[in-house]
Amino acid sequence: MSVAGPRFPQAAPGAPLVVFDFDHTLYDGDSGSHLFRWMIGRAWWRVLLALLIAPVYGPLVAFLPTRRFGISGFVWVGSVFGLHGRGDLDAVIDRYVDGHAEAIRARLLPVALEVFRAHREAGDRVVVATGAPPELARAILAFVAHEDVPVVGTEVGPRWGGVGPVRHCHNEMKMTMLRDAGFGGPVEKAYSDSSADLPLLKAARAPVVVNPKASRVAMFREVLPAGTPILNWGCPGRAGEPVA
């Protein structure tokens, strides 16, 4: 699935730490939602079960404090009676990515990948921190020869005959999981679209907001340092100053 690419210099232990979100940052859309929608669509009874729980779990996804619980319901529907742990989910992810290679590749944002590549060429310590399962981001990055980049993502485990999130890499937990993965110390630069990543953006010496929702731009300008770039890397329907 990966393509031949340049060899990047090995980042030194003290090199600047640069953290990228994945969805709506490197990838146009919510990769986890695309995966779980496909998993649910594999069987009619999963679709029916998802429709039955949607009135309860759907609204939970919309709010930060309850998002993990809302997502976990749909993850369970897509995995019950078939998946029993991370290894099973990783295998399904690889099948999904292989079967949707063209559509997934088209969602990778060229401007974002140029910035990503530039940091790697500079010898920075680059890490992707995402709310999606880490194998999903790794498999997608393999299309552009970045599969060796460390990925910190949501951890899953067995749940009621399927799988569900054990630690959701989201909001403050994203910072905790980065530290637990060995990426402690100061964050030199952070790129994200999401208000859920405010702990990460505020921790960075140089935060960069990319592809935000238009309704969140004023909030970002208020809470982040003056002059923080708010950019659009070619993500349709999102705000930010366009970058050629």
Rank of each mutant, 00 (worst) to 15 (best):
D193V: 12
A62D: 10
F63N: 12
V127E: 02
V208D: 00
Y57G: 05
V208G: 04
P133N: 12
L231D: 09
D23N: 06
G78L: 01
E155V: 14
V144F: 03
G58S: 08
P242H: 08
N232H: 11
A239H: 03
V223I: 11
V18S: 06
D124H: 15
G162Q: 05
R221A: 07
A122F: 05
F74L: 00
R67A: 15
L64H: 14
R105L: 09
D180K: 14
R179C: 10
F20E: 11
L26P: 07
K189D: 10
F8R: 11
E147T: 09
P212Q: 03
R105W: 04
H34P: 05
K202G: 08
V111W: 01
R138W: 06
R107N: 10
P186M: 12
Y191D: 00
I104Q: 02
A139Q: 12
G123W: 02
E147V: 06
L201Q: 03
K202I: 03
E114K: 15
V210K: 05
D28I: 06
I104R: 05
V217N: 02
V128D: 00
N232F: 05
S195Y: 13
W38F: 12
V151P: 06
A4P: 06
F36I: 13
G78W: 00
V128G: 02
I93W: 00
E241T: 14
V166S: 10
V80G: 10
G85M: 09
G78S: 03
V208N: 03
G14I: 01
D28T: 02
A43W: 04
H84I: 06
Y27A: 05
L136S: 03
R46Q: 01
M177S: 04
V92Q: 14
Y96E: 00
D30S: 10
Y191M: 03
P65C: 04
F74P: 00
G14H: 10
E147A: 13
Y57R: 14
V223A: 01
M1L: 10
H146A: 05
W45S: 11
A139H: 09
S33L: 15
T25C: 12
V19N: 01
A196Y: 08
C169M: 09
T176S: 09
A244G: 15
P165T: 11
K174Y: 00
A142F: 06
G14L: 00
V210W: 01
L89E: 01
L113W: 01
T25A: 11
L109R: 10
P16E: 09
K202C: 11
L231Q: 03
G99F: 08
Y57W: 14
H34N: 14
P150E: 09
R86I: 05
L48C: 11
F183I: 05
H34T: 12
A50S: 12
G162N: 07
V152L: 08
A181M: 01
R7F: 13
P186K: 11
L64R: 14
P6I: 13
P13L: 07
L64C: 12
E147L: 04
H84K: 14
D28A: 14
A244H: 13
V3K: 09
P150H: 08
